[in-house]
């Protein structure tokens, strides 16, 4: 029973990983690519880790999987934040059909 739950979690995680990478190819500019890929791939990898924990059981490997969930969920948004800020500071424009850019109005790039 618990094996089937693990397989379901791993399958959902793989599906979201694949969707995130398709979003990485399809979206028009850096910020939208970061949006799609960071969300989907982080959730997918955390789901794969939880499925691994369910299938391995409550031993050293399972505990490492749980710690890896916490670590990935804390660091992936931080790296996305750093990358988007660096891209904006280095002068990469938003997509031409974007509606508004209030960040450039407040802190214009030098």
């Amino acid at each position: 029973m618990i094996e089937i739950a693990g397989i379901i979690f791993i399958t959902v995680g793989l599906l979201f990983d694949l969707l995130g990478c398709i979003g990485l190819v399809r979206m028009p500019d850096v910020y939208n690519r970061l949006q799609a890929s960071t969300k989907c791939v982080t959730f997918g990898t955390c789901s794969i880790m939880f499925g691994t924990f369910l299938m391995v059981g409550f031993n050293a490997t399972g505990m490492k999987a749980l710690l890896c969930i916490i670590f990935v969920a804390l660091t992936a948004p931080v790296s996305a934040h750093a990358l988007s800020r660096a891209a904006h500071k280095s002068g990469i424009k938003l997509w031409d059909k974007s509606v508004v850019d209030q960040y450039r109005e407040d802190c214009p790039a030098e």
Binding site: D17, C21, R33, V41, T52, M55, A65, S79, A86, S90
Partner: peptide, 26 residues
């Protein structure tokens, strides 16, 4: 087209490899 796109893709590739290692050990 820009360096930022490549860095984003490499970041995502790193997280995918973490998932790959987790599946390999089962």
């Amino acid at each position: 087209p820009t360096a930022a796109d490549r860095i984003v893709a490499i970041d995502i590739l790193g997280i995918l490899i973490v998932g790959f290692c987790a599946i390999v050990n089962i």
